[in-house]
Computed example of a mutant assay.
Amino acid sequence: MTAHPAARPTQAVVLAGGQGSRLRPYTDDRPKPMVEIPGTGTPIIGHQLAWLAAEGVTDAVVSCGHLAEVLQDWLDATELPLRVTTVVETEPLGRGGGLKYAAASLPRDDEPWYATNGDIWTRFSLREMADFHHERDADATLALARPRIPWGAVETDRFGHVLDFIEAPPSPYLINAGVYVFSAAFTKMLPDRGDHERTTFPRLARERRLAGWQIPQGAYWRAIDTAKDLTEAAKELASGKQES
């Protein structure tokens, strides 16, 4: 069963308040989502907003924190493909509290919404993820990725003979990819303060109200956490492994 287009979110929250200490010196004068992917001339959040708009999002709330004014100035000066408002936490609320605070500024509180971490650069069909969320009648759906292990793997037989060397194989485990679909009712389930991944998510999982949607094989996904991630993203862009 495919969701009616009206059931697909048209609003989103982008969490862009992190300090990005592992990306220094890039983040000495700008927040993490304002770091540019080499070769594109566009900050991470610019790619995110373009992707959200292409997937049918008309309104986004950007939650700012570290060096918020730098991000706000860029948003004000840039022609954007969707309506964007910003919120700034006046005191630390934790990940769940921050998400709830930002969601309060969404224009339609009776409709579902997307959320994404501000350091994710990805391209996949949010519409397909929203349809999966609708079909499972979930309150929250996580995008799941299978990143490549950064080390080479060694394959052996049961006698200990080395059979093969595998460069950067896919992880055997799925991880939280930092992109979500939430029902309208989910907002009230978030804590005012604290981490929803330790409170709300476990409770929903026990109730079978939390779904996990695997990003399709071949779709591009990368979390930009370190300078090495920037370098790898630039190489992948040059090789055509992902769309800018």
Rank of each mutant, 00 (worst) to 15 (best):
W51C: 01
P216K: 15
Y26E: 15
W121G: 06
E155R: 09
G178E: 04
V179K: 01
R22F: 11
P9H: 02
A233V: 02
A205H: 01
Q217D: 15
E69R: 15
S244E: 13
T187A: 12
T231A: 15
L99Q: 13
A68I: 00
D76S: 14
D29V: 15
W121H: 05
G56F: 05
E207N: 11
Y101G: 06
F165S: 06
G41W: 00
M129A: 05
A211I: 09
H196G: 02
T58A: 08
A140H: 09
Y173S: 14
D229H: 14
E91N: 14
W151R: 12
K235C: 13
K235A: 14
T58I: 07
T199Y: 01
Q48C: 02
T85K: 15
E79Y: 04
G218K: 10
D76H: 11
P81L: 03
P216L: 14
W121R: 09
G96A: 13
H133L: 05
A185G: 12
P147T: 00
A177C: 06
K32I: 04
P38T: 12
A145W: 04
S21W: 09
D131V: 03
L210F: 03
N117M: 04
I149P: 06
L144F: 09
A153L: 06
G56P: 07
D29K: 14
A7Q: 09
T199R: 02
R123N: 08
